[in-house]
Simulated scan of single mutants.
Amino acid sequence: MITIAIAEDHQSLIDGIKLFLEYEDGIRVTGEANDGERLLEIVRLKRPDVVLTDIRMPKMDGITATRLIKKEFPAIKVIAFSMFEQDEAISQMEEAGASGYILKNSSLKTVLAAIRTVAAGDTFFDSSLKNSHTAKKDNSDVPLSKREHEIVKLIGEGRTSQEIADLLFIGKTTVDTHRKNILKKLSLHGKSELLRYSMEKKYDF
């Protein structure tokens, strides 16, 4: 059973999502909030598996709420639910720890897909967002070093920094430094973007 908490300042939108999810097996809405402070209270009380949250809310915005939720409960997955398509908003939510980002005009099927995907441990970004948010990052001409290519390949295989360090006979701090340099070169924001990039690339070594 996937338990959900929804935070949105428009109650009618919460009601619509709840009504849709009522008919889905294995998913249950256990809490709802109309502001960020109430969302934190719900999360601390109910400990949901997934949080679906707006970014702009009264009392506390979704970015701050996400950061606090992930700090206290790292296992809880957060999905941003917003009308904002700007890269800055997406990046801020990713950096705060969100695993997904969908738009309010998305279909309810997209909402459902996002919930199931992040609950399974993956990331989910609205397909209409993906094109604009990642297009500038899909640049095969970016000059990565041989070592950086090796690290990107291993990240795409799901290796942790420690595993990469062991495989390449280098220190973990060196791997972390390479990760930061790769992020900067590719104009990526956070671990999830780097993982997505590395999985989409095809390397032949």
Results as ranks from 00 to 15, higher is better:
residue 88 E to C: 00
residue 87 D to G: 04
residue 112 L to F: 06
residue 65 A to G: 03
residue 120 A to C: 01
residue 142 V to A: 15
residue 82 S to L: 08
residue 170 I to T: 13
residue 87 D to V: 08
residue 70 K to C: 08
residue 35 D to E: 15
residue 199 M to Y: 04
residue 101 Y to I: 07
residue 34 N to V: 15
residue 90 I to R: 10
residue 106 S to H: 01
residue 28 R to W: 00
residue 45 L to K: 15
residue 181 N to P: 00
residue 152 V to T: 11
residue 124 F to T: 08
residue 197 Y to V: 02
residue 43 V to D: 08
residue 75 A to I: 00
residue 163 E to H: 04
residue 185 K to V: 01
residue 203 Y to W: 13
residue 27 I to W: 05
residue 197 Y to S: 05
residue 146 K to G: 03
residue 180 K to T: 12
residue 188 L to V: 14
residue 167 L to R: 12
residue 86 Q to V: 03
residue 16 G to S: 11
residue 138 D to H: 11
residue 51 V to R: 04
residue 201 K to I: 01
residue 153 K to H: 14
residue 10 H to E: 13
residue 195 L to W: 00
residue 6 I to A: 04
residue 16 G to I: 04
residue 100 G to L: 05
residue 157 E to T: 01
residue 171 G to L: 06
residue 122 D to H: 13
residue 97 G to K: 02
residue 38 R to K: 15
residue 136 K to D: 10
residue 100 G to F: 03
residue 137 K to M: 14
residue 89 A to C: 08
residue 182 I to V: 12
residue 6 I to R: 07
residue 139 N to W: 07
residue 6 I to Q: 07
residue 62 G to V: 04
residue 60 M to S: 09
residue 111 V to P: 03
residue 197 Y to Q: 05
residue 12 S to A: 11
residue 96 A to G: 02
residue 15 D to R: 09
residue 17 I to C: 07
residue 102 I to L: 11
